[in-house]
Simulated scan of single mutants.
Amino acid sequence: MLGAGAQQAHDAAQVLPLRSDEDVVRLRKQVRDSMVAMGFGLIEQTKIITAASELARNTLRYGGGGEAHVGRVRDGARQGLELRFVDAGPGIEDIAQALTDGYTSGGGLGLGLGGAKRLADTFHIDTAPGMGTTVTIAKWKLF
């Protein structure tokens, strides 16, 4: 997210369920279509689609499913695509540890959260044990 005092405008977000691997495929397509429509290049598309895929799979695996919100955002002369992943799962006890490369609580490679953070321009996580998790990322472009 942006720092204090930043003015950001949001268009209505499309909400996609994340209940199965097929939903992850649909999300990837929606993100790609949105990025193409906004004029993002192939490298930026690949980065944000990869991050979206990682976060969607985390939503399924660790959060028990949830939803993804995909929408355009504006901040002054720049526009972007914002993705928000919401679940009502067990939450994350130690965010710093979860962001550490190699850490996994489920037998994966341990690159999901930290990798998504590096691939996005902005990254914000809101979580607490027993309260679920919301991860918001964005990719920005000057227009």
Rank of each mutant, 00 (worst) to 15 (best):
M38G: 05
V135T: 05
S20G: 03
A37M: 10
S105A: 14
I92D: 00
L111S: 11
H69Y: 14
Q14E: 14
I137L: 12
I49K: 13
F85H: 01
A37Q: 14
R28Y: 03
D87R: 02
L99C: 08
G80E: 01
G63W: 04
Q14K: 14
R118Y: 11
R72L: 13
A96Y: 10
G39Y: 05
G108A: 08
G63R: 04
G39N: 07
N58V: 04
R61C: 08
M35D: 00
D33H: 13
A52E: 03
Q14T: 15
G110N: 05
R61L: 14
R57Q: 14
V31S: 02
F123I: 06
I49V: 15
L42K: 15
P90N: 05
T136C: 11
Y103T: 13
G65Y: 07
G110K: 03
Y62C: 11
I49P: 02
F123N: 06
W140R: 01
R78P: 09
R84E: 03
G64K: 02
A56W: 00
R28M: 10
L55N: 04
Q79N: 12
G89R: 05
V36D: 08
W140A: 04
G107K: 05
L99V: 06
S20R: 12
G89T: 09
I125T: 06
Y62W: 15
L111Q: 14
L83W: 03
G76F: 10
D94N: 07
R28K: 14
E54W: 07
D126A: 13
A56C: 05
R72S: 12
L16W: 08
A37L: 14
A37K: 15
